[in-house]
Amino acid sequence: MSDKFVISISRQYGCGGRELAGILAEKLGVKLYDRQIVHIAAAKLGINDLSEEELLEMENRVQPLSMHFMPFHSFGTHMGDSSSGMFLSESAAIKKLVADGSCVILGRCADYVLRDNPDHFAIFACADDDFREQRGKTAYEGKSLKELDAEDKKRARYYNYYTGRNWGEGQNYDLVVNTSKKPLGQIADGIIAYIKAIKKA
């Protein structure tokens, strides 16, 4: 595929979204970014004494929403906790990486960060519960569907807090794909065909 593009992949835990992102990047011959963004952001903040797991866990420190909730984006940059600092630094890292060329970005609220980028295509990957439950057993260290759903609640809370939008809501994405319907390679081909058709229009 010619011309510049960036694909962001958001996904339900256990649907194979990480694998799908990797297949897309390989088919398109571009880089895949995910946890590299976390490390770039941490370096910008001068955080060098935390493990990767500890850095990722920072995203789970967002408290559950309350009746008096006001989303982070309403405050601008005036919230000083470590989690908000990481979000802002990750956002800056994403924009810098995208400026360097076409790529696939997994997670990191990239669909929101790049919402005004005309070369950006936001994809949300989901799957049926039976499919996710089976993958939980085989590909996610024996995690139950309940455990997968708990991880999704953390993702949704983080995303909603920093973006003011609802995680997984179709209107926030260019395309929603169900990974339990076809092999991931075929789904990747479908996504590429969709993007090519849109770029030609």
Rank of each mutant, 00 (worst) to 15 (best):
M1C: 07
S2A: 06
D3Y: 05
V6T: 08
S10F: 10
R11C: 13
Y13V: 15
Y13M: 15
G16E: 02
G17F: 09
L20I: 09
L24R: 00
E26Q: 07
V30C: 03
I37W: 01
V38G: 10
I40Q: 02
A41H: 03
A43E: 10
G46N: 07
L50Y: 11
S51H: 00
E52A: 15
E54H: 09
L55E: 04
M58T: 12
R61H: 14
R61G: 02
F69G: 02
H73P: 11
H73M: 05
S74N: 04
S74Q: 08
S74Y: 04
G76V: 12
M86K: 02
F87H: 07
E90S: 12
S91T: 10
A92G: 03
I94Y: 01
V98F: 04
I105L: 06
I105F: 10
C109F: 06
Y112W: 11
V113Y: 07
N117C: 15
P118I: 14
D119F: 14
D119C: 14
H120K: 06
H120A: 14
I123H: 02
D128Y: 03
Q134Y: 04
T138Q: 04
S144P: 09
L145A: 08
E147V: 10
L148T: 06
A150T: 10
E151M: 15
D152I: 13
K154I: 14
A156Y: 01
Y159M: 08
N160A: 12
N166I: 14
E169C: 10
D174V: 15
D174L: 13
L175F: 13
L175H: 03
T179G: 07
P183Y: 03
I195K: 06
A197W: 02
A201N: 06
A201G: 11
